[in-house]
Nucleic acid binder design. Structure first.
Lengths: 245, 245
DNA sequence: AATGTTCTGTTCGCTAGGAGACATAAAGGC
DNA sequence: GCCTTTATGTCTCCTAGCGAACAGAACATT
């Protein structure tokens, strides 16, 4: 058993949808090697170009994949929660990627050593199919991010980001300063302030010092660009669990 | 043998780097099912959400993966040439994707039925590894496109696009109107005119009615944003052949 | 309560690029 | 050659978002 399980009896691996979707035999074989670890806010799960010793299956946390440029400017490429895993480069064969993975909302994840993951990926067809389908959903999210970056306003992108993030948590609130959201979206903090102000004035959200509460999700979904729906639809189609976007 | 081979004796499957990198046994097994087909300019290799009956291994053509939004605005997500294949959704398990694939530079490709590809993907580890590594390179390109869309000027993006395209052809020239480039980059045609004008004034390229010639590639590489180098480095690292970017 | 720190809100000037309207200019059909 | 089509170059106006500076407000620390 993973060593932290006793300390956190309320966590079980099946909170991660990929693990939950495994056939019983595969799941049981993986179980002894899954280790529950806390992912604190801001932690770099992996660095650009760095070695991946583990993959992480988030339960209640969110991890952002983002790319930081030479001049310090950054942009989020995709976001991963309980519907997926962090570290696809391991089974894709590249071992590393040029992007970083940063914890955006603290919580717990089950980690698995890269060695065991690779072994299981080769041996278990259900696991392999699951991970590849997840990767395709991630690809869709990245592609849509590229399109959204090109064509949509900060306000629309903020709405998309909020909805994608909330789909990965179990509430309608999240803790995140405007500064950090700006880093994720690759825009200025002031731009986020302005966009959030509009949404707040419209009564869709409530913002207060790093704490956002979505008050009217249906209206927020009306205002978001089509990118959110595209990503969600593909995720629902490709992934087990039908919860994640 | 593929039916068009006789008509085009100068084409051989190994012009595609993925096919060329296969072990002899795997290559021979695939060979009878590879069919050389022309891909004319503008052809939609597949449509958004459509069924994929074949995958395509380009030899001397370029295929753009692009996403078209409801309002008609579009953006290129990635570009595929002789280093890769079109249709990764087949072996990733999703069967379809929300993006389109459009021929950007006419030429020939070897196509393989989806049924045979899936069979071989399951049975041949070398093929599987090759395709997954290629997919990771494609992911890098998509991620970098997202970042580039966010932070860089039209001129820089045009330079990136030119270099990525030329890396996939066998010359320093390509046929493409500014209008089409604008569609790919998701910007206005006037913006491309202006950016191309600057590059032309600087003596880096020559532009004339749909025909672009790169006159000074080293200087163009100096002027491009870092995104080009990131994509190229990852492609060189991940892919066989060391030619493609 | 005093103080420093961290967030958020707001301002002003500036620029890249979008929208649209045209003006050339080269190629092609006949 | 003439005329149409297609490609490119160039204007004008306008807006979103950047850069920078700063003010206030909430929170933390002592």
């Amino acid at each position: 058993m993973g060593k932290n399980l006793a300390a956190s009896p309320s966590f079980i691996p099946t909170q991660n949808h990929l693990l939950a979707a495994l056939p019983a035999a595969d799941y049981q074989r993986l179980l002894p090697d899954l280790e529950l670890v806390p992912l604190p806010l801001g932690m770099a799960v992996y660095e650009s170009g760095g070695r991946l010793d583990y993959v992480y299956f988030p339960t209640d946390c969110i991890v952002s994949l983002l790319y930081v440029m030479k001049d310090g400017a950054s942009a989020e490429i995709a976001v991963v929660g309980h519907e997926g895993l962090v570290g696809i480069a391991l089974f894709m064969g590249g071992e590393s990627t040029p992007s970083r993975a940063v914890v955006q909302s603290a919580g717990y994840a089950y980690r698995l050593s890269s060695k065991i993951l690779k072994r299981e990926f080769e041996q278990s067809h259900p696991l392999q199919h699951l991970l590849l389908r997840y990767t395709q959903a991630l690809i869709t999210q990245m592609a849509q991010t590229a399109v959204c970056n090109r064509h949509h306003s900060v306000e629309q992108q903020l709405a998309r980001w909020l909805l994608l993030s909330l789909d990965r948590l179990f509430s309608n609130e999240l803790n995140m300063t405007q500064e950090l959201i700006a880093n994720m979206l690759g825009v200025r903090r002031e731009g986020v302030t302005e966009a959030a102000g509009k949404l707040q004035t419209a009564g869709l959200i409530h913002y207060s010092r790093g704490h956002i509460k979505v008050l009217d999700r249906p209206k927020l979904e009306e205002r978001v660009c089509e990118c959110y729906a595209v990503v969600k639809r593909e995720s629902d189609r490709l992934l087990p669990g039908r919860i994640a976007a």
